[in-house]
Computed example of a mutant assay.
Amino acid sequence: MYVPTRMGCCVALAVAMALALPAVAQPPEFLSTAQVAPALIRTDSISGAYEVVHWGEAGLIFVASVPSFDKGSAGFIQVLDAATLAPIRQIQLPRRPFALALDRGTGRLYAGNTLDGSLTVIDARGGQVIDTIQLGQPEDEGVEHTRMIALDEARGLAFVTSPGRQGVVWIVDTRAGRLLHRIEGGLWTAGAAYDPAGRFYASGGGTEEISVIDASGQRIGALSTGDTTGTGEDDSRHFFVNLAIDTVGQRLFAADAETGTLHVFDIASGRSVAQVPTGPGTLDVAYNPARGEIYVSWRGVTRDEKAGTGGLTVIDAGDYSVKQRLSLPAHPNSLEVSADGRTLFVTVKAPHDKDHPDYRAGGLDSVLRLDLARLAAAN
């Protein structure tokens, strides 16, 4: 995924967000390289890696790849063996993909072309481009950007967020390949999570950080910390950049890029019931019901400190205690839990700031495969 700033539309990943890590009790020590090694397979082979999705039935993972931000340059989907991370094929796209979502029933892969404000529909087995669906409307010198995609496979719907100052959510009929609804409202609408019961959650900043939208396109509620009282952009106390959902326990997990914290919301009451400090540059969050764990990636940089490196925080989903911390230089990005809950896939960005001590011209991004049972045994 790309990282929008608080101002919404910037996609330059080297620009870090303003973050502050609150004072907390001493967290667990980082696992050593030797401790993590038995659980880890890593490939440093992707140019411009962003989101990753896993297709267990086919034994594949798909990685969005954007080697260049130059206008008119191509994008790619890198297809890797899910067990070994060995490359299988490369799919070239006419537009650059950042976000990915897979409809496992139809075998269709949806790529969010952030800078073009559109979706590309791809046959996941054969690699052919089936369709391109334009969502973003012209604004300033470009178009409204897309960000995250969440699918309702049963209803044939795709929910897509747009992180502008005026937040937008699009609902797409994936069977007909057409836009059904455009819902405006919210600030920096970035994160996305979907409950198959028919509720979509879109997160960002402002006084009501999380909007609740039903499958018919109606905004039916909101979840809020209550911390932000002013209506201006600079008043926002939080930026929930990504979401994950516990559909059984009816909880939302929100990655707060503004404070480096994971917020846990009880959906029924709409209240934030727990806050777990994770790390500076908190970005993605994934929930694993099979293991009762939450995973949070953090990039390790702030606006004032651009030379840091990030990691992964493993949280107990029962009592919200931090179980493990892993250092994953340089900048962990997107997370994907396998359907059986045994494996976590992570994309890791190489530094793009030339002042970063680990910067190397032409450096490639990474994909990691973590065996979660072996990782748990590393303590």
Rank of each mutant, 00 (worst) to 15 (best):
D70P: 01
V143R: 15
A244D: 13
L93H: 03
D353M: 06
I46T: 09
T114I: 04
S327C: 11
G230V: 09
M148Q: 14
V276A: 08
R165T: 14
S73C: 09
D304Y: 12
R175A: 11
V79M: 08
P289C: 14
A39W: 08
G167Y: 00
A158Q: 01
V169N: 01
Q275S: 15
G185F: 00
T278G: 05
T146L: 08
N288Q: 07
F200C: 09
D358S: 15
P97V: 02
Y295L: 03
G112L: 11
D131A: 15
A202S: 04
G270C: 14
T106P: 08
D214F: 05
R360K: 15
D235Q: 04
A197E: 07
T313G: 07
S236C: 02
D70S: 08
L31G: 02
C10F: 03
I122M: 05
E336I: 01
T189W: 01
R360P: 00
A307K: 04
G191L: 10
A37V: 02
G185D: 03
W170N: 07
F98S: 12
G164C: 03
G48K: 00
P277H: 01
A176M: 04
V168R: 12
A361G: 02
T229K: 13
Q92I: 06
N113C: 15
D365P: 01
E293N: 05
E305C: 05
T278V: 15
Q35L: 07
V264E: 01
L328C: 04
L180T: 06
N288L: 13
L102N: 03
L328E: 02
R108K: 10
P94V: 13
R237V: 04
A14H: 02
A290S: 10
L80M: 09
V129C: 02
T106R: 08
A317S: 14
D152P: 06
A290V: 12
D353F: 15
E144W: 01
A350S: 13
A373T: 07
R125F: 09
Q128E: 12
L100R: 04
D140A: 15
R271F: 10
L370N: 05
I294Y: 01
F253C: 09
P196A: 12
H145Q: 14
F265C: 03
A244F: 09
A39I: 06
Q166W: 03
R182F: 12
G204Q: 09
A86F: 06
V36Q: 02
A317R: 02
G8K: 00
V241A: 12
P28W: 08
A377G: 06
P357G: 12
D173E: 07
D234A: 15
A158L: 03
Y201D: 00
I77T: 11
E336D: 14
V11A: 11
V285D: 04
G362M: 00
A377S: 12
A373S: 14
R6Q: 15
R360Y: 07
V241D: 10
R147M: 11
V264G: 03
V367R: 05
T261Q: 10
R374Q: 11
G232T: 10
E51Y: 10
E51L: 08
Y320D: 06
G177P: 07
S65C: 08
A16S: 14
P4Q: 02
P67Q: 00
A74N: 11
